Computed example of a mutant assay.
Amino acid sequence: MRSIQRNITFLVCTLLSHVLIAAEEVPTSKPISIGLTISAPLFDGSCGKSEWGAAQKIELPAGASIYLMHDKGSLFVCAKGKAEDYAVIDLYIENAETGNLHNLHASAQLSEKLLIDKEWGQPERWNLKDWGGFWVPYAGYEETEKGRRPKFLKGSHREIQVLRKKFSGNIWKMMISVSAINHEGDSQAFFFPEKAVDTDTSTWLTFSFSGA
């Protein structure tokens, strides 16, 4: 009898530990409040200025960070890296009305793509609908072993503006990726939330427009 009780106790404790671990990995259901600003920022490749003072700041590894704020008509997002980083940003947003997932991308180009049948479609470059951004600036050419290639400016910050009419409601489900960050001798990507998966919204977080 005691042996059976010990086995039952062991099984219960094991199940509880798995439940607790799973609970820690699930993002919080409470929306993150996005900072409210009274004026739109100038898109100049810098989100460290006072004009981003109202933003919700999210710290990432390797000296990278994300700024989020909004006014009545727009969401503003900025990805900040170090002087040696390109700070490429991918903003993923779920359309609550259609269920579609959108990827808004800013690197040397601006593009948008949709998740179709659990696969991301081809990016539509420069044909932007209700959003825009500050891309990685062109900085001339450099000679390499493979020939001449374009060079891009390091150290600028990546900014995106999304008109709120593009997605309905005052609460949006999103994830954010900041890549081309120099870390431990390699170019790396970091995510918010940390374990988010771009095709699985259950791993994303909800964000609310404060004062909206």
Rank of each mutant, 00 (worst) to 15 (best):
L114D: 10
V162R: 06
C78D: 06
D44K: 03
A62L: 01
H18W: 13
G48S: 01
L205H: 15
W135N: 11
E194I: 10
I66Q: 01
E184W: 03
K80E: 12
V178P: 02
I21W: 07
R164S: 08
L11W: 13
H102I: 10
N100H: 12
I32S: 00
S3Y: 13
L205R: 15
A40I: 03
L153Y: 08
Q161E: 14
D117T: 12
S187M: 10
I4Y: 05
I4H: 11
P61N: 05
V88G: 11
K129L: 13
P123H: 08
I58H: 04
K118N: 15
A54V: 04
R148C: 07
E194Q: 14
I160K: 06
I38Q: 10
S208G: 09
G155C: 00
T203H: 08
A87C: 02
A40F: 01
G121N: 03
Q56L: 13
S168H: 14
I93A: 14
L15H: 04
W172Y: 14
T206P: 09
A212F: 05
A55T: 03
P31E: 06
A108L: 11
A180S: 15
G132L: 12
A139H: 11
I8N: 07
G211R: 04
L163C: 09
T37V: 00
Q188H: 04
I4A: 11
I171L: 12
T201Q: 11
L68P: 02
I93N: 11
D90R: 15
S74P: 08
